[in-house]
Design a protein around this nucleic acid. Structure first.
Length: 307
RNA sequence: GGUGCCAUACCCAAGUGGUAAGGGAGCGGUCUGCAAAACCGCGAUUCCCCGGUUCGAAUCCGGGUGGCACCU
């Protein structure tokens, strides 16, 4: 079993920055990190994969020359990932000397794990999970729910949510076999959490503009390249837009409704991110509707005194 | 100008005399190891407007307005 506390920390995470997709995290982080002499630790499940830079709006090569970045594009597109694996990667970054880090990203679960750590729980077991998924398909969720209830107190959301049901049952069965798993310490205990607040109409129009920009800078080619070397069951295809673009890969022009549905999914994702931030991370909100300069001033004032 | 068809929420839409289905969008929420995932909750005191018939009208009748189609 892995040890709860891994390598010694040679640097620390001074603050966390979240916000909906398109709220301007990447750009702001770059400016502030440069001004304060920090490096950036990405907390983004999509941007952490290689080959998805355009569609996930990852920091550019130029950005990464200006400021030291970590955990961007360092994971294979078809690699399995998890919160715990993310923490392993982050821990590795912390065990090497370097500037203090600003953790930035849209994957709130990653941000939360950095700040709060994780309690002990058995690691996922792919074989068991596969088995349970098949059982779910053949027997239905009620049967699995009963099994789960017989093993202890199930999480309330497992009743209706198949993904959560499978995980909860997997966990319960592994615990019964004696698998304990290990808890994970917070890598950024007590670090302040900031989040960019952009009003919805403004965010929506930014997302629309960003989608056009992504397509103009070759998103479709990125998808074609990915389709050539990555099986269509790989996790990377779950990122917004990738599956839709792969399906219309051979069409000369992108159908209007594909565009529209990518935009819709992105808006819905942004809304979920804000819900999570609001209710789980309780961040200090930084108004970010204004010009980049104004937002930078605002944020600079907010982080004044940190580090 | 004439004739016909249509008008129900932001969009699509069921309902054809008994008290407004459903889907999408949007909004809110859940989530202790797949999270850009998966899942849950919320919508019309009213059916284009005015009048009439009826115990009762989104539904029937008359008029108006708007849209579509065809004809001239």
């Amino acid at each position: 079993m892995e040890c709860a506390n891994l390598g010694n920390r040679r640097r620390r995470i001074v603050a966390l920055l979240g916000g909906a997709t398109g709220s301007g995290k990447t750009r702001l982080a770059l400016e502030i990190a440069q001004a304060k002499g920090w490096a950036i630790l990405s907390a983004d499940s999509g941007q952490s994969r290689a080959g998805l830079a355009i569609g996930t709006a990852a920091p550019s090569a130029t950005d990464m020359e200006r400021v030291e970045h970590h955990l961007v594009g360092d994971l294979a597109p078809d690699a399995e990932d998890s919160v715990a694996l993310y923490l392993d990667r982050a821990d590795r970054v912390l065990s090497n000397p370097g500037p203090d880090l600003l953790a930035v990203g849209g994957t709130n679960q990653f941000l939360q794990a950095l700040r709060d750590g994780m309690s002990a729980s058995p690691a996922p077991d792919p074989v068991l999970r596969q088995e349970l998924s098949e059982r779910l398909r053949s027997r239905g969720k009620d049967v699995l729910w009963d099994e789960l209830a017989a093993l202890g107190t199930p999480p309330h959301d497992a009743r209706t949510n198949p993904v959560r049901l499978v995980r909860a049952l997997e966990k319960a069965l592994l615990v019964r076999r004696g698998v304990q798993g290990s808890s994970r310490p917070a890598l950024a205990p007590g670090a302040p959490v900031f989040a960019l607040a952009v009003n919805r109409p403004e965010l929506h129009s930014r997302l629309e503009a960003r989608l056009a920009a992504m397509l103009a800078s070759g998103w479709r080619d990125e998808v074609r390249a990915l389709a050539e070397r990555v099986p269509d069951t790989a996790p990377c295809w779950k990122c917004i837009g990738y599956r839709a673009l792969r399906e219309s890969m051979d069409l000369p022009d992108l159908p209007e409704r594909t565009l529209r549905s990518i935009l819709e999914e992105t808006r819905q994702y942004a809304k979920r991110q804000e819900t999570w931030l609001r209710n789980r991370l309780a961040p200090r909100w930084v108004p970010a509707d204004g010009s980049p300069e104004a937002v930078l001033r605002e944020f600079a004032a907010a982080v004044e005194g940190i580090s």
